[in-house]
Nucleic acid binder design. Structure first.
Length: 414
DNA sequence: TCTGGGGTCCTAGGACCC
DNA sequence: TCTGGGGTCCTAGGACCC
């Protein structure tokens, strides 16, 4: 009997439009092509590669950016154009593979496993995807191809601008271990600072550290995750059909003196905007969080959970106002420069999902069956908690005590 | 140089329950 | 009266991403 050792091939694509907003501007305005372009005046939302060559980066303050690159052409964002471009790009994504997980308006993971007989090798699929985005949407897109998400994501970054990079299955460790830690998706300034402080600069350095040591430095989840990544273990699948978990709106108004009730007026407008979007999407949420930022750039949040999920402006605004009143001492002390509202605990579509199960199974078995069914429909990781409700025929659904419920969920991770 | 407007996930501690 | 294990839900804040 022969044993086959199956080495899976790279089938995960990470596709990412280069300098998205800036590229759309250059596409639509020929005079901007080949020139340093900055989208957004106050803060850099996007910078063309010509501007990046001068050190301009997104999220940088506008004045610093103009200082680094005085010749830059600064343009106001045109959101409709970016939305339309995003739509075009995602149509091509979804036409390329049925398994697409969007990460933002301009990037996505695609799993092309099993598509070889129809579409060819992953590398060919990636090449065709790049050509189609260029021809049909007019934008350059870089693609990384690898066996895991983290490798594909890093590969597309290395491939930029306008490139394609395949990480072959037998070249993964070499590729990974040479990387500086801050290049890894999910490792930001704070984590890399901690790692550097312990003499860990490359992923190879991290791989030489024990999991316990990494947990000691970074905490449980981050330590475990990074240990696995450094040892090239990243089993996360490309997940389709992920739904958003919160809706929010915020507004920064700087240090200019404002009428005393200005922030509360802004708050009302923000709640209205967020609630409107929830109603359009047909979703409801329960946890209202007020976000504040102050003159010294410190931040604070105050949150509360409503008795039942809603998408109505009125209860959300009332909660927001209570939180604002509660935070008033901090606000007066530190000087408010930003206010925001987020509605989280967005659960389902407001209608819930009903499953019919045979009677006589017992609560536990019924719950297990229901969870299996939900996983089948929404993916293995989509369900984190399930509530089973049994309804007595002789009581109106409005009478809450008529419902009996059983509940299960993941054990707390502590 | 003085920092936008969205989001996601994780941690830690407290209140409360059986 | 005190103690423990096992659990849920909520709030506040931090890190990270584009």
């Amino acid at each position: 009997m022969r044993t086959y050792v199956r080495v899976s091939e790279p089938t995960i694509l990470h596709a990412d439009v280069d300098a998205f907003y800036a590229s759309v501007e250059q596409r639509d305005h020929p005079r901007l092509r080949g020139r340093p372009v900055i989208v957004g005046g106050g803060v850099v939302l996007a910078a063309s590669y010509e501007a990046r060559a001068h050190g301009v980066r997104s999220a940088m303050g506008g004045s610093q950016a103009r200082c680094l690159c005085p010749d830059a052409i600064v343009v106001e964002p045109r959101w409709e154009a970016y939305t339309a471009a995003s739509k075009g790009v995602f149509e091509i994504f979804r036409d390329t593979s049925p398994v697409v997980e969007g990460l933002s308006s301009e990037e996505a993971f695609l799993d092309v496993r099993g598509l070889r007989p129809i579409s060819g090798a992953p590398e060919e699929i990636a090449g065709r995807l790049r050509r189609r985005v260029r021809d049909q949407v007019g934008l350059a897109i870089s693609v990384g191809v690898a066996r895991t998400k983290v490798l594909a994501k890093v590969a597309s970054g290395v491939a930029k601008p306008d490139g394609l990079l395949v990480v072959p299955a037998d070249g993964e460790r070499e590729f990974l271990h040479a990387l500086r830690v801050e290049r890894v998706w999910g490792i930001g300034p704070s984590t890399s600072r901690k790692l550097h402080a312990h003499g860990l600069h490359t992923v190879g350095d991290v791989a030489a550290a024990s999991e316990g040591a990494l947990i000691g430095v970074l905490g449980r989840a981050a330590g475990r995750h990074l240990h696995a990544i450094a040892h090239n273990r990243d089993p996360r699948p490309v997940r389709t059909g992920r739904r958003r978990r919160s809706y929010g709106a915020q507004s920064a108004f700087g240090l200019r003196p404002r009428p005393h009730d200005y922030a509360e007026a802004v708050l009302a407008a923000l709640v209205d905007r967020a609630a409107r979007r929830m109603r359009t999407a047909g979703r409801v949420g329960a946890t209202v969080t007020l976000r504040l930022r102050f003159a010294d750039f410190s931040r604070a949040t105050r949150s509360t959970t409503l008795p039942r999920p809603t998408a109505q402006t009125r209860p959300i605004l009332a909660a927001g106002r209570r939180l604002f009143a509660e935070a008033r001492p901090v606000i007066e002390q530190r000087g408010l420069t930003l206010v925001g509202i987020t509605v989280a605990n967005v659960n389902g579509d407001g209608g819930g999902i009903q499953l019919e199960l045979p009677l006589g199974l017992g609560w536990t078995r019924a719950l297990d069956l229901a969870i299996d069914e939900l996983r089948e429909r929404f993916g293995p990781d989509a369900i984190t908690r399930a509530t089973l409700v049994g309804r007595r025929r002789d009581l109106s659904p409005a009478l809450f005590p008529g419902d009996l419920s059983a509940r299960t969920g993941e054990a707390p991770r502590r």
